[in-house]
């Protein structure tokens, strides 16, 4: 689905879904979806529970196939390279496409070790360099001031909102290009949610962000583009203001005005 938004051409396309269908076993979770994610923009995917939102963004970093039996048709192009090509290096793909999950999932390790986990995987062991990366990532995720004096304490002792920002820091520590966020605020209280939203606003200067949310106000507040997904099909995709003020389809309007979902 091409977006008609008037200022087309100014944005660089980062990710293109081209006729993507996604199966769990025999069950078709995504049905022939084509859309683009633009560089340094926040793209929100909205839709009722079970419509395939999470599956859609998880298809980009190929994380679903670890625990599930999946089949894919169509293409997911990251910088014009299909991530489902045979020669794709999954480790490199997942470094470039970072992910933040629905529930904060810090490792049961110290705050420092959580952030340093990624760089260490790639073999960075120089203490001074790691220190810098950890500080940089925590500053970027707006957590540094709260944790700088207790980097060696367990991450599990942090509050839910802090844990989620730590997970964002952990993802940033490997210097990704894209951030996938799967309902990152659904387990958080309104204050923590507001902080994460502020953070997203800041992070989009540097990263391409795809966020799944079932909170329509959130999508309206933070995203530049919004896609409405229903039963695995992309019903409508447009700049966010257009979706929320003047949707093309009746069903989109019904959903965003709370008539179902």
């Amino acid at each position: 689905m091409k977006v008609e938004h008037g200022i087309k051409g100014q944005q660089k396309t980062k990710i293109t879904l081209d006729g993507l269908s996604f199966y769990y076993g025999k069950y078709k979770a995504i049905d022939n979806v084509s859309m683009e994610f633009f560089e340094c923009m926040v793209t929100a995917i909205i839709g009722p529970s079970g419509c395939g939102k999470s599956t859609l963004i998880k298809s980009i970093n190929r994380i679903s196939e670890i625990t599930n039996d999946v089949q894919v048709e169509g293409k997911v192009l990251l910088d014009n390279k299909n991530v489902y090509d045979r020669d794709v290096d999954l480790v490199d793909l997942r470094r470039r496409v970072g992910m933040v999950f629905q529930r904060p999932n810090p490792f049961p390790k110290s705050i420092y070790d959580n952030v340093a986990f990624g760089p260490r995987l790639y073999g960075v062991n120089n203490k001074k360099r790691l220190d810098e990366i950890v500080e940089y990532s925590l500053v970027k995720s707006a957590l540094w001031n709260e944790v700088k004096d207790r980097l060696n304490q367990s991450a599990i002792g942090l509050s839910g909102g802090q844990q989620q920002r730590l997970c964002i820091a952990r993802a940033l520590a490997v210097d990704p290009e894209v951030l996938l966020m799967d309902e990152p605020c659904s387990a958080l209280d309104p204050t923590a949610t507001a902080r994460i939203e502020e953070l997203i606003e800041d992070l989009k200067k540097y990263y391409t962000i795809a966020i799944v949310t079932h909170n329509m106000q959130q999508a309206a507040r933070i995203s530049d583009y919004t896609g409405f997904l229903l039963n695995g099909q992309l019903i409508e995709y447009n700049i966010t203001t257009a979706i929320f003020t003047n949707p093309d389809k009746k069903v989109t309007e019904d959903y965003i005005t709370g008539r179902f979902g």
Binding site: N61, I63, I66, T67, L90, V91, D92, L93, R94, R95, G98, M99, F101, R103, N105, P106, F107, P108, K109, F117, G118, L121, Y122, C167, R170, A171, V174
Partner: peptide, 27 residues
């Protein structure tokens, strides 16, 4: 050990062995 930890590890680019050895077993 919750699956979320495995996903987080894979999501950062860890291999299966790295995930087992550095995340699942310590947890």
């Amino acid at each position: 050990v919750p699956n979320e930890l495995r996903e987080a590890s894979y999501g950062l680019g860890a291999t299966k062995w790295e995930t087992i050895w550095k995340v699942v077993v310590p947890a």
